[in-house]
Design a protein around this nucleic acid. Structure first.
Lengths: 153, 153
DNA sequence: GACATATAGTTGACAAGGAAACTTCCGGGA
DNA sequence: TCCCGGAAGTTTCCTTGTCAACTATATGTC
């Protein structure tokens, strides 16, 4: 028997493969939407706003799993790009309401198509049943660990 | 027919679930090894060095999927922590040879055990067959896209 | 009504990685 | 031998996130 067994290999962990594939997907996607002048975090931000019509930064922070500070700066950038606008919350002097500008609203479907294409391209090496299975497994894990935040990075 | 179909939902993408689960695993792991004074990138660095005995920074950059600059700074930090040492490469005046210090070598099995525990804890909600299947699917995707770099972030 | 406490958002300091310029060294031609 | 192109590392600047301190507003308690 060896005095100290060799440490487990990186490749033995599911987390390793998960990170590898996940990073590749995200990096591919980031590169594609870079052409639209937008980052992945900005895409998630815009997409959330598209559904909500108008959202408080604190809620967005909660949903995106980022700090208030990060959201504040993200909003600055998107506002600079004329994709998002801030308005005071009439019911609470501290709060504000974020919403998409027309340009921002117009951009979302464009980005969504890119996201669709990226996802399809990346997972087309799997058969449809395998894709379904992969999705089911991931959702099962997410549910078990009560993951709810939209992942950003 | 609607004039503009609604943009696809984030949740429709496999990449979304992949990122969500992957980020959760990594963040959990990062929090656990923080107690050992080490980051995830540093763990990957140390683990690679453990197998290689001595490695050039450029090779490490290749394997970790990071830039030379990042590796240079990572080596600085680990050297500061007395876990890694630099030596000049006798055969090439430009190169150097990175290796683990005794402290670094002693730390790797400790970190490996934490990694094992983290992985087990995270995926124990899946049945063994499901875990195998998940791993197989991820490796299939990695192979199809020729992913070889150890993911870091 | 006044004050203590909590909450919304902003800001500044810091961390860590990428891109590119830079330094040093190698090795191949003329 | 003397260049000159390329490779190895380092350094600088930029980006983008966290954390914690700060400002302003709201709310509950006496």
């Amino acid at each position: 028997m060896s005095p100290t067994p060799p440490p487990s290999d990186l490749h033995d962990h599911l987390g390793y493969w998960l990170r590898m594939v996940s990073n590749a997907v995200s990096q591919d996607f980031a590169r594609e939407i870079e052409g639209q002048g937008v980052t992945v975090a900005e895409w998630v931000f815009l997409r959330a706003l598209h559904d909500a019509d108008c959202l408080a930064p604190s809620l967005l922070a909660e949903r995106m799993g980022m700090t208030k500070g990060a959201i504040s700066k993200l909003a600055d950038r998107l506002s600079e790009k004329k994709l998002v606008q801030r308005a005071p919350n009439p019911e609470d002097g501290r709060g504000q309401m974020l919403s998409l500008t027309p340009a921002g609203r117009a951009l979302v479907p464009e980005l969504a198509r890119i996201a669709d294409g990226n996802d399809a391209a990346f997972f087309d090496t799997l058969a449809p049943a395998e894709r379904d299975h992969l999705g089911a497994l991931l959702r099962k894990i997410a549910r078990a660990h009560e993951l709810t935040r939209a992942p950003v990075d």
